[in-house]
Computed example of a mutant assay.
Amino acid sequence: MREWPVQDAKAHFSELLDTCLNEGPQVVSRRGEAKAVLVPLEEWNDLNKRATPSLKDILLADEPRFEMDISSRTNWTWRSVSVEE
């Protein structure tokens, strides 16, 4: 993965884009510190898909992905409802 100073990335954006598409993600740095990554769209979509599971993936998972705090019914407050015709 090549690192491009922001000035070079601006001046040679077409080359940066071609390198990204042919060789993979490219790092853009500012003042010697990595700040961003240019990745091919297909790879970006794949990463987003894996980061955001579908409802089916969540329901079929072996382990729960998150905890839900559901209070027991004994703590619920019940109120009366009148049904008028």
Rank of each mutant, 00 (worst) to 15 (best):
E3I: 10
A36W: 09
R30K: 15
D62M: 03
K10N: 09
D18L: 12
I58W: 00
T74Y: 10
V27E: 01
E67A: 02
E43F: 01
E84D: 13
E42L: 08
E84S: 12
V28E: 01
E23S: 15
H12L: 14
F66S: 05
K56D: 10
V27S: 02
E85Y: 11
V37Y: 08
A11F: 05
A9L: 07
P25S: 15
W44V: 00
E33L: 09
M68K: 07
L38K: 00
R79G: 07
E63M: 08
S54G: 06
E15N: 11
P25R: 06
R31I: 05
E43H: 06
S29D: 07
R31M: 09
E3A: 07
S72C: 07
A34H: 09
P53Y: 02
R31D: 15
S54T: 15
S54V: 06
D57A: 14
K10R: 14
T77H: 05
L59A: 13
K56G: 06
E23F: 07
S72Q: 09
A36L: 14
I58Q: 01
N22L: 10
L55W: 11
L47V: 06
N22C: 04
N75I: 05
E15R: 11
W76H: 12
V6D: 03
S54Q: 07
L17M: 13
P53T: 00
S72D: 13
K35L: 08
M68A: 07
P64F: 09
A51V: 01
A36F: 08
R65D: 02
S29F: 04
R30C: 09
R31S: 14
V83M: 11
K10P: 00
N22F: 02
L21S: 05
S14D: 12
S14V: 11
K49W: 11
Q26S: 06
S80P: 11
E67H: 09
L38R: 01
